[in-house]
Simulated assay, not measured.
Amino acid sequence: MPTMTSSPRDSRQRISVPRAPQQLEPTPELLAELSAASASLESATPEEIITWAHERFAPYLTMATAFGPEGCVILSMLAKVAPETYVFNLDTGYQFQQTLDLRDRIAEKYGIEVDMLQPELSVPEYEALHGGPLYKTDPNQCCFDRKIKVLRQASEGKHAWMSGIRRDQSADRAQAAIVGWDKKFNLVKVSPLANWSKSDIWNRILAEDVLYNPLHDQGYPSIGCWPCTRAIGQGETDDRAGRWSGTGKTECGLHTIQESDGSGI
């Protein structure tokens, strides 16, 4: 059964992260370079894309993961080609316990410590400020405060970030480039799995015994915060049907293409 938690994660020693002396600027030269790289990497393997990103942007390359199947696959690849990459999770305080436990299992198996970045306010403080759980009345603001603002802070001192999005997941994600400029966070965004399908992901997981969230075996194809995630029912074919169910909301704002919502976990 899914285990829910709204308690802050146990405090951990902060991971030392290299910071670039200055942010990248989207100059015409850089945008042209990214466009050319994206085109050349269209037929590349995810490992080749990750290797390119590491060679071009390390040590100012990072990865954000929500510990979904795609993120776990990338972590297994990073362990082989770029294990020193800084990886973080947006720990909203509303994650399933199974998700938090997966972080520790990944560290044990792959030697990659995922930094759990939390908002300034704890869940009790945040809910007291808003007179109760904001996810019930304004889930967009809740996502903004507890995800997007944290990612903006995490992006400071970075030049590029990787995500596990796939083009076949949604209309917004269908337009994702392999490599492109993320206007929302002023970073280069790299999507190594953009061309992969759900079958590709699970074939790799099964072939290489990649760790994954056990909730996927309980009808949760897409897992976010527990208050806004449910298992999908029989006949539901959209993997994200269980996210923000009944609200019309399908994205937290990290990967939507509208500038007002955020261009891109």
Rank of each mutant, 00 (worst) to 15 (best):
P2N: 05
S7R: 15
P8D: 10
R9K: 09
S11E: 14
S11H: 10
R12K: 09
I15R: 11
S16L: 15
S16G: 04
V17E: 09
P21M: 11
Q22H: 14
L24G: 01
P26S: 08
P28H: 09
L30N: 11
A32N: 13
L34V: 04
S35V: 02
S35E: 15
S40P: 03
E42T: 13
P46S: 05
I49Q: 03
I50L: 14
T51C: 06
A53V: 03
E55C: 06
E55V: 05
F57D: 01
P59M: 08
A64L: 15
A66Y: 03
E70M: 01
E70V: 02
E70Y: 02
G71T: 03
S76H: 15
L78Q: 03
K80Q: 15
K80D: 15
A82N: 11
E84W: 08
Y86I: 06
V87R: 01
F88V: 10
L90M: 14
Y94H: 13
Q95I: 08
L100W: 09
D104I: 05
R105H: 08
A107S: 08
G111F: 12
I112N: 01
E113D: 13
D115W: 09
L117R: 15
L117W: 13
L121I: 07
S122Y: 06
P124S: 10
P124D: 10
A128W: 07
L129P: 00
H130V: 03
G132L: 10
G132P: 08
D138E: 10
C142T: 07
K147Q: 08
I148D: 02
K149D: 13
K149L: 15
K149G: 00
R152T: 13
Q153S: 12
K158L: 15
K158E: 11
H159E: 06
H159C: 02
A160N: 07
A160E: 01
W161D: 00
S163P: 06
I165C: 00
S170Y: 08
A176G: 07
A177H: 15
I178S: 01
I178Y: 01
G180N: 08
L187W: 02
V188M: 04
P192I: 05
N195Y: 05
S199Y: 04
I201Q: 00
W202N: 05
W202L: 06
R204D: 11
A207L: 09
A207M: 08
Y212Q: 03
P214T: 08
L215D: 01
L215R: 01
H216G: 04
D217S: 12
G219W: 02
P221M: 04
P221Y: 05
W226E: 02
T229P: 04
R230V: 14
R230I: 09
R230E: 12
G233V: 06
R240M: 14
W244S: 00
G253W: 08
L254C: 12
H255W: 13
E259Y: 10
D261N: 12
D261L: 14
G262E: 03
S263Y: 12
G264T: 12
G264C: 10
